[in-house]
Design a protein around this nucleic acid. Structure first.
Length: 579
RNA sequence: UGGGACGUCGGCAAGCGGUCAAGCCACCGGGUUUUGAUCCCGGCAUUCGGAGGUUCGAAUCCUCCCGUCCCAGCCA
């Protein structure tokens, strides 16, 4: 057995530690599970995975990895009314994409229906379960309230033989849906409502994605979950805080079945991940999809794994975010800035740099030869010399970003303005000589500039400094693209809470500016070859991903995953207040 | 008002009776820079929900109080 002190355990070596890993360390020291660590990720296939699930996935698979254990993927498919094949498939795809491997351990709670049923007969035979004929309403009424005890069902004292007979007939389909249930016989006066004779089986003639029509009774979560953990040899059954109240029941079933260590799972609860300016409940996410408030589960504004993937998030960024967030029992809400930080951190070292002008303003370089085109060498990624170089065409007419020019520049603005000189990234210094406006609207439509032929490459022999460096795209070579700029889906941090407090619907807080589409953007020609799903850094803008759905060579579409940090925006905001 | 849990910096989160209360994000400086990006350097809780108490010594132990979350699905 491993007798190394906790400080040497894999968890400690990797620097991460939390109360769950502490429990595992102490179990390992005590030999509770003979050093075994076996976790599971148990999604219900009734929706798509979101960033909250990612936290659980990273936790469960991560712990297994660190301790040299295993982690199963198990679909908690006990309620066929809401579960679908589509979800079973998408969940596997997302877990895999996140970088985790359940190897040959893909399980379904429904794999255990027969065994669960045998267990149920066992409890019934021990007088620990009974068949109740009260209606759903009657059961609710007799359950009592948090402050007052429930009352026993008139069927509670039925003889064991009769219960067994009735249970078998329930399984055989002799009774109508909802007419009977199997209940654990615990204590109708328990302070913990979950212990007031909880339901183990209900009759539902519903087609199950996995077991088809072979069952008409289905186990409830409480009855199925712990026993499934036990069957799989799970050691640490990690779930979220709302199941804390269920732990006594989880343990009660295991006790009733006489499960003992080293094969007896232990439930541990942690706080689920909450993010601001979005919703995370499957019900609400489903609503947004069904009502067309978003384009689908993979809309880049959604907190779903597939949405984030389409937006340009990487598995690495999501994983490091989940690790950075930590694990505790404190209900908390993580700052979106934290998520964005981890994406930028990852993409900064990997995304090729490229020039894209989102809101083009034409610049004519008057002293540049009419028909000349130069091929300029440009580094693909200053953070990664191995990324190599590419060439960019430069010509007399180029586009620059409209916001990089100000006719009347504010303080601290060091981009282009009349009479000012700036550097064009990788190429020449240009000076603005003339501003051409639309005579009717007064809008600036073109800039006439001159360049310094000595400044090729971005510096001059006289060593003079220019304060601004702009990105640009050669006009005749530019490729047109559509760029989608995303903002938070909701305009308030806690849409659901606010809605409840204000007595309105959470959809009221949907952010009308969560998607801004920029048409006719001008991007450098190398992007013509961009493949779907690739993420680039648009210099001075942010990270953009070629859209999975709508992008094609003929119709380039980019999604903004996240912007670059923008200290000029901060300065401008601060200065603006004083002007 | 029953039961279960949680309250440490703007947001997370270490800390488990003993010099100074980790770290990350955010924020605020300053430096480098052909991205106002990146990178680097520095700042950022005399105080741990509050009040008492135990102790030579408490965020850590005890008592009371306050606040927040979860539970009355034949959902998970």
């Amino acid at each position: 057995m491993d007798t190394r002190p906790a400080e040497d355990s894999p968890a400690r070596e990797s620097g991460s530690s939390d109360f769950i890993r502490s429990i595992i360390d102490s179990d390992n020291q005590n030999g509770t599970y003979q050093g075994r660590v076996h976790t599971r990720f148990p999604p219900e296939p009734n929706g798509y995975l979101h960033i909250g699930h990612a936290k659980s996935i990273v936790l469960n698979f991560g712990i297994a990895e660190e301790y040299g254990g295993k982690c199963n993927l198990r679909f908690d498919d006990t309620n066929p009314e809401k579960e679908e094949l589509e979800y079973i498939e998408s969940i596997q795809q997302d877990v895999r994409w996140l970088g985790f491997d359940w190897e040959d351990r893909l399980y379904y709670a429904s794999d255990y229906f027969e065994q669960l049923y045998q267990f149920a007969e066992r409890l019934t035979a021990k007088g620990l379960a009974y068949v109740d004929e009260l209606s759903a309403d009657q059961i609710r009424e007799t359950r009592g309230t948090p402050t007052q005890a429930g009352t026993d069902s008139p069927y509670r004292e039925r003889p064991i033989a009769e219960n067994l007979d009735l249970l078998r007939r329930m399984r055989d389909g002799e009774f109508a849906d909802g007419s009977r249930v199997l209940r654990a016989r615990i204590d109708m006066a328990a302070a913990n409502i979950n212990l007031r004779d909880p339901i183990m089986y209900r009759i539902r003639r519903v087609h199950h994605p996995n077991t088809g029509d072979s069952w008409c009774i289905y186990p409830t979560y409480d009855w199925a979950h712990g026993q499934s953990d036990w069957i799989e040899g799970i050691t640490h059954s990690i779930c979220t805080l709302e199941f804390e109240n269920h732990r006594p029941l989880y343990d009660w079933f295991l006790d009733a079945l006489e499960a003992t260590p080293p094969k007896r799972p232990r439930q541990i609860e942690f706080a689920r991940l909450n993010l601001g300016y979005t919703v995370m409940s499957k019900r609400r996410l489903l609503e947004l999809v069904r009502e067309g408030r978003v384009s689908g589960w993979d809309d880049p504004r959604m907190p779903t794994i597939c949405g984030m993937r389409r937006r340009g998030y990487t598995p690495e960024a999501i994983r490091s975010f989940c690790r950075a967030v930590g694990v505790s029992k404190t209900n908390s809400q993580i700052d979106l800035a934290m998520l964005e930080f981890h994406l930028r951190e990852d993409l900064n070292k990997r995304a090729p740099r490229v020039m894209a002008v989102l809101d083009p303003l034409k610049v004519v370089i008057e002293n540049y030869p009419e028909a000349q085109v130069e091929q300029i060498e440009a580094q693909n990624n200053p953070e990664d010399p191995a990324a190599g170089n590419r060439t960019l065409p430069f010509s007399r007419e180029i586009y620059i970003e409209r916001e990089d020019f100000r006719e009347d520049p504010p303080k601290k603005f060091f981009r282009l303005a009349p009479g000012r000189e700036v550097r064009l990234k990788h190429s020449y210094y240009i000076t603005c000589n003339e501003v051409i406006k639309d005579p009717s609207s007064g809008e600036v439509i073109e800039l006439r500039c001159s360049y310094d032929p000595q400044s090729r490459g971005g510096s001059t022999p006289d060593g003079r400094k220019v304060k601004g460096t702009l990105h640009w795209v050669s006009a005749p070579h530019a490729v047109e693209a559509e760029v989608r700029l995303y903002d938070r889906l909701f305009s308030v941090a806690n849409p659901s809470d606010d809605a409840q407090r204000e007595g309105v619907d959470y959809r009221t807080y949907l952010n009308p500016e969560s998607l801004r589409i920029m048409q006719s953007c001008k991007v450098e020609p190398s992007l013509r070859e961009a493949t779907v799903g690739t993420t680039f850094q648009f210099l001075r803008h942010g990270y953009f991903c070629v859209d999975l759905q709508d992008g094609s060579a003929a119709n380039l579409v980019f999604n903004r995953a996240v912007s670059l940090r923008d200290s000029w925006a901060k300065i401008e905001r601060a200065e603006g207040g004083q002007r």
